[in-house]
Simulated scan of single mutants.
Amino acid sequence: MPMINRLAASPVKHPSAALLCVQILGILLYPLMEDTSAERALFGVIGLLVLGAALYVVKRGPWLTGFGVVLALPVVVLSIWLAFDFDPRRMVLMAALEAVFYFYAAGSLIAYMFEDDVASVDELFAAGATFTLLAWAFAYAYVVCQTLLPGSFGALVAPGNPRTWMELLFLSFTTLSGVGLGDIVPLLPMARALVMIEEFTGVMYLALVVSRLVGLSVTTRTARGKQGTDREFPEGGPG
């Protein structure tokens, strides 16, 4: 029973961890649901779960939650609409709104991590969740780019076909992490511009946000060790 209570309280205590888990689950499930209309409907449900988890996490940050709700509501409506009546024109509109929302959510989490000078457990999970939010945001930006400018992205396999959501998300993760483009490449100037912006974002995120959390973690651990030593050896030391 205590274990169940701890598991039930975990999403409340560490919402960033819950968001990260939902997004990782989405990565594993998305490849299984891109073909039929029923699978696209399930795809939309997973997207709404990620959206809801992101919205829940946003309220931990200092940014206006009401603005996040305003951004999320049209996405929810369009997701339900597309599940029953798929239309590429509505799809590109939803992708644009989702890109804006995920950029907003990522910015809110970064602001949350910069609020204090202590690296909490939830902030460490927030670092991972923010990375995935940025990857999602750029992937949706790639969807918009590909829809408005056909042929924006190519691949070694089926180079003439539009890239799937999973391929664009893969491109986003590889670009943001700096490990290389792999077999998905930007071909048109606007696509290359978006990839360059994501590369810059990934470098700055590691340099400014992750390095700061690592430094705060070391500082916090050192301070706790010093406090423990002071309690064990009061009045100037063991001698």
Results as ranks from 00 to 15, higher is better:
residue 196 M to C: 04
residue 27 I to Q: 11
residue 193 A to W: 06
residue 194 L to I: 09
residue 216 L to E: 09
residue 175 T to A: 05
residue 226 K to F: 09
residue 77 V to E: 00
residue 179 V to T: 11
residue 2 P to A: 12
residue 163 R to K: 10
residue 171 L to H: 10
residue 71 L to Y: 04
residue 54 A to Y: 08
residue 77 V to F: 07
residue 62 P to N: 07
residue 198 E to R: 04
residue 12 V to P: 00
residue 172 S to Y: 01
residue 59 K to C: 03
residue 190 M to C: 04
residue 132 T to V: 06
residue 159 P to Y: 02
residue 177 S to W: 00
residue 25 L to C: 08
residue 160 G to H: 14
residue 127 A to M: 08
residue 194 L to A: 02
residue 209 V to S: 01
residue 213 L to S: 04
residue 147 T to I: 03
residue 186 P to L: 07
residue 132 T to Y: 13
residue 182 G to P: 11
residue 170 F to M: 08
residue 134 L to C: 01
residue 157 V to S: 05
residue 80 I to A: 14
residue 216 L to P: 01
residue 2 P to F: 05
residue 95 A to P: 09
residue 146 Q to N: 12
residue 29 L to C: 10
residue 18 A to P: 00
residue 149 L to I: 13
residue 224 R to E: 15
residue 91 M to K: 12
residue 81 W to C: 01
residue 5 N to Q: 14
residue 92 V to G: 03
residue 14 H to A: 09
residue 142 Y to A: 02
residue 196 M to K: 13
residue 89 R to E: 15
residue 114 F to Q: 15
residue 11 P to L: 04
residue 7 L to R: 12
residue 72 A to G: 08
residue 91 M to N: 14
residue 53 A to L: 02
residue 153 F to A: 05
residue 170 F to Y: 14
residue 109 L to A: 06
residue 181 L to Q: 13
residue 235 E to K: 10
residue 99 A to K: 08
residue 10 S to K: 14
residue 164 T to K: 13
residue 215 G to R: 15
residue 62 P to D: 08
residue 136 W to Y: 12
residue 35 D to N: 14
residue 104 Y to W: 12
residue 231 R to I: 01
residue 194 L to R: 13
residue 184 I to R: 05
residue 48 L to S: 06
residue 132 T to Q: 14
residue 208 L to F: 12
residue 39 E to Y: 04
residue 195 V to R: 03
residue 94 M to Y: 00
residue 36 T to G: 10
residue 126 A to I: 04
residue 237 G to Q: 07
residue 193 A to P: 00
residue 41 A to L: 11
residue 221 R to F: 13
residue 188 L to Y: 04
residue 23 Q to E: 07
residue 171 L to P: 01
residue 212 R to Y: 05
residue 193 A to V: 10
residue 75 V to Y: 02
residue 203 V to A: 08
residue 107 G to S: 09
residue 41 A to I: 04
residue 224 R to V: 14
residue 6 R to T: 11
residue 159 P to F: 00
residue 60 R to G: 00
residue 100 V to R: 03
residue 182 G to W: 12
residue 160 G to P: 02
residue 237 G to D: 04
residue 225 G to E: 14
residue 106 A to H: 06
residue 50 V to H: 07
residue 143 V to K: 13
residue 130 T to G: 06
residue 121 V to F: 13
residue 127 A to I: 11
residue 234 P to W: 06
residue 26 G to S: 11
residue 178 G to D: 00
residue 210 V to L: 06
residue 137 A to Y: 06
residue 12 V to E: 07
residue 212 R to Q: 11
residue 66 G to W: 07
residue 121 V to G: 04
residue 94 M to G: 03
residue 94 M to W: 01
residue 90 R to A: 11
residue 130 T to E: 00
residue 60 R to V: 01
residue 225 G to L: 12
residue 18 A to L: 05
residue 47 G to W: 06
residue 170 F to L: 10
residue 233 F to Y: 14
residue 129 A to K: 07
residue 57 V to G: 00
residue 151 G to S: 06
residue 74 P to D: 04
residue 193 A to F: 10
